[in-house]
């Protein structure tokens, strides 16, 4: 027996998972599934609820008609309390609350994929104007501290006149690219290690910025507001997201499919002209490839991002 009464799910057999799942899915969504259930404290039973949603991942040229039912994983843990009368009850969340958790989880998956993509393509896209402009202060610090083995922080402040200068210095110091003592910037351990490799200034800049993106992506994007960091990864992922979900490195999508991804996974309603502009830039640096209205990926980038995605369990 399992039924919903006054906002509570009542059931007597904690092992009848199929029945519980059915009752919950009727209320919330047909995509609901019970991912796990286990004994919790105070004789309670924890029920982890996951959600799957259908997504068309068909190849737009081959028209192979493939729908992937993407499992976003657990979005909520419900606790069944024993009533002492031979049955359990769960105080059910509002449907809108479960939906909000589902949307958050979807965006989280997209965000993790952006991180994987940022690592894979930073060397291709950070030279593009909008990204380079936003990272310019950071790049300047990387280059100047390389040129000057001792640089006063005040001097940097005077040149950059930005409150972000101190934040960038902190990030670079945390990553051991520099150290600051008594207001003077010195090379850090990692900068000294780079010296051993005999890198040119441009190579050094590229290596440091790559490491900074890899190791401080979230800090730069969220705390230092460098939104451009996930700008191009997001547009690249509007293609790669479907390819990775489908595990198809030769997938071709049309731009409408990319717009749908941007809308549903990132919550962005992107004008086709804007999308075309971004794709053109990504095509210039060989992050994606195009044939008319169709888009496909660079196999090397697909492999790198798909491998990273699989280790983070974000593929689906």
């Amino acid at each position: 027996m399992s039924e919903i009464r006054n906002g509570y799910l009542i059931f007597n057999d904690p092992n009848a998972i199929g029945e519980l799942e059915y009752t919950l899915s009727e209320r919330y969504t047909r995509g609901l599934y019970i991912q796990d259930h286990y004994q919790a404290s105070n004789d309670r039973i924890a029920v982890e609820v996951g959600v799957a949603f259908p997504k068309d991942v068909s190849d737009c040229r081959e028209r192979d008609n493939v729908i992937k039912h993407i499992n976003v994983g657990a979005v909520e843990t419900l606790y069944a309390e024993p009533t002492g009368e031979g049955y359990y009850e769960i105080d059910l969340p509002e449907r809108s609350d479960l939906h909000s958790e589902f949307v958050k989880q979807r965006h989280k998956i997209a965000s993790k994929l952006d991180y994987s993509m940022a690592k894979a393509i930073y060397s291709d896209v950070y030279q593009l104007d909008p990204v380079n402009n936003q990272l310019n202060s950071l790049i300047q610090i990387v280059r100047w501290t390389r040129k000057e083995s001792e640089l006063r922080v005040e001097r940097l402040d005077g040149i950059q006149r930005s409150s972000n200068t101190r934040d960038y210095l902190r990030v670079l110091e945390d990553l051991n690219f520099l150290r600051i003592k008594d207001g003077v910037i010195y090379p850090g351990e990692r900068a000294e290690a780079a010296d051993m490799q005999d890198l040119t200034l441009d190579e050094y800049e590229k290596a440091v910025v790559g490491t900074v993106i890899e190791e401080s992506y979230n800090t730069l994007r969220d705390q230092l507001n460098l939104r451009m960091l996930n700008h191009f990864p997001k547009f690249a992922n509007s293609y790669y997201y479907s390819a990775i979900q489908k595990r198809d490195r030769d997938l071709w999508l049309d731009t409408e499919a990319l717009r749908k991804n941007l809308y549903y996974e990132w919550g962005d309603d992107v004008d086709p002209l804007v999308l075309d502009d971004k794709l053109r830039k990504l095509e210039e640096v060989d992050v994606i490839r195009r044939d008319g209205d169709y888009v496909t990926g660079n196999p090397d980038i697909y492999d790198e991002v798909a491998t990273d995605a699989s280790t983070q369990a974000i593929a689906d």
Binding site: R30, P54, N65, V66, K68, H69, N71
Partner: peptide, 15 residues
Amino acid sequence: DSYQVQSGTHGRKLP
């Protein structure tokens, strides 16, 4: 036969 439905990580598909 005319279309294909793939399941995700947890092997779940919708009815």
